[in-house]
Amino acid sequence: MTATETAPIRTTPPSAAAARPHDARRRRRHRPEPFTIASYLGVGAFGLVCLIPFWMVIAGSLTAESVLSQRGYSFWPDPFSVDAYATIFAGSRVWLSYGATIFITVVGTAIAVASTSGIAWVIARGLPWLSKPLAVFTYIPMLFTGGLVPMYILITQVLQLRNSWFAVILPLVIAPFLVFVQVSFFRGTPQEILDAARIDGAGELRVFFQIVLPLSKPVIAVIALFYAVTFWNEWFHALLFISEPAKYPLQLVLQNLITSVANAADLGTTTAAPVYAIRLAMTVITIGPILLAYPFAQRYFVKGLTLGASKG
């Protein structure tokens, strides 16, 4: 299932009805219509706008600090310099915050996928007195939230999770929206296979782990990616609950660089650090893994967003 094929253009299976559109298509190939040309230009322009900021920041991070602060940003790093990266990686802070972000992302995604899959299957299972109440139970938090203050009191006073990475992870591990995405996928599990397993004496857990999960790899990939990006980009809870600089995740380090360029000096070992270039280099370091994983991940994201639609 791809979102990239579209009805009006897709080659139709050979049939009588398809004859005319086919002619039309052939004609278009010779002389594209104005709207089609405008579309290419429009999408191309928007695409450029999407990418330019990334390039600006990458180019800026590779420019020597002296030039950067005098001439501002330019599209080509001249003179080329890796000082900013050298400074950042010489310090220990970046490694610590990478560690923090990786911990939050890996542990958070693992907990999130496990618990989301579990409840999604029970909802998809369709038992009227169990699945339906659970669906409502999962749906209510989408409509009504306690908000910042009770969460703050809960984490800091009741659970005493201040300065723990779990304060960042736990409030985000169940996204009701993703539960329902997964439910709609689980519903498509072939009933015959489940019946066969049950007749052979498989219990609920066995059915789930040995049949449902192996059949659901695509949706699990989708869910995992959504959660992973959420955790990688998380900074709000970190801002609230993590005050020890040694435990800052990447996004929070970056946020500190926005508030004050002076914080850039903390990253390296020397005080005479290239602060502006450091801010940009830190940005590149923060988004790097996401951009590297992107070509692989993007397909699944589109799939996840399309899951609901194809059901319609």
Binding site: P141, G146, V149
Partner: peptide
């Protein structure tokens, strides 16, 4: 998790 982190704050 939902009881603690979604319903808990509601009660809060």
């Amino acid at each position: 998790l939902l009881v603690i982190f979604s319903y808990g704050p509601m009660a809060g």
